[in-house]
Amino acid sequence: MANPVILVYSSNAQTRAAIVAAIGRRPAADVGLVDFLECSTLPEVLLAVDSQAADLLVLDGEAQPVGGIGICRQLHQELPDDIVVPPVMLLVGRAADRWLATWARADEVLLSPPDPVTAAEAAATLLRRLGSEQAPVAAELTG
C-alpha cells in the first residue's frame, strides 16, 4: 500500500518547506510514513484533487495570488459530486482568521509559522480519520 500523500500548497517555497518540516515524514507512529506533494499554483492543486493524488491538503491562507482559504471554499462549493475533497488544513497568519477557515469548511486550522507538535498532531488526526473511512486513495508519486 502506498504512503498517504499530503499536498502542501503555498506560493512561497519557504512556507512549503516550513509546513513539510513541521509535519515531518512520520507525523505519528501509528500513521507511518507520508509523502509530500508540493504545489505552488491553483491549477496544480485542482489537478491533484481531480486526479485524487492527495489524501490530505495543507493550504496556505496567505498564498498569492490565490489564497488557501479561497481554494478551500472553492473545492467544497464548486467541485462535482463525484470528486471527493480530501480533508483540509489551513495555515492562517492571524488567530482572528480562524473564522474564515471555518467558513471555508477547513477541517483543521494552523497558525503561521506552523508549530511542529501541533502540525504533526493535526495531520495525524486527519489521516487516522481518513484511514478509518478508507485506505489512502493517492497513487505513488513518480518524482
Rank of each mutant, 00 (worst) to 15 (best):
Gly32Lys: 01
Pro114Thr: 01
Ala122Glu: 06
Leu110His: 01
Gln14Cys: 06
Glu133Trp: 11
Gly24Cys: 01
Leu46Thr: 13
Asp97Gln: 14
Ala120Cys: 05
Ala95Phe: 13
Val8Gln: 02
Ser10Glu: 02
Pro114Gln: 01
Gly93Ile: 03
Val58Met: 09
Gly93Ser: 13
Met89Tyr: 05
Ala22Ile: 05
Glu78Gln: 14
Ser132Gln: 15
Ala106Cys: 02
Ala28Ser: 14
Gly32Ala: 06
Gly93His: 03
Gly70Asp: 14
Leu79Thr: 03
His76Phe: 09
Leu127Ile: 04
Ala96Glu: 15
Trp103Gly: 10
Met89Pro: 04
Gln134Leu: 10
Gly131Tyr: 04
Arg25Met: 09
Glu140Met: 10
Arg16Lys: 03
Gly67Ser: 06
Ile71Asn: 03
Arg94His: 12
Pro114His: 00
Ile23Gly: 00
Val34Asp: 00
Met89Ile: 15
Arg129Lys: 08
Ser112Val: 06
Val31Ser: 06
Leu100Pro: 02
Pro27Gly: 06
Glu108Tyr: 13
Arg94Gln: 13
Gln52Glu: 13
Glu78Trp: 07
Pro136His: 04
Tyr9Gln: 07
Gly68Cys: 05
Gly143Phe: 04
Glu140His: 12
Ala54Ser: 13
Asp82Ile: 09
Asn12Trp: 07
Phe36Thr: 00
Ser10Met: 04
Val58Tyr: 06
Val58Gln: 06
Gly67Asn: 08
Val117Ser: 11
Arg129Pro: 05
Glu78Lys: 10
Pro86Leu: 12
Ala123Ile: 02
Trp99Pro: 01
Leu90Gly: 09
Thr142Gln: 11
Val49Met: 02
Cys72His: 01
Val5Ile: 12
Ala135Lys: 12
Gly67Arg: 04
Gln134Glu: 14
Ala135Thr: 14
Leu90Asn: 09
Ala54Asn: 05
Val137Arg: 15
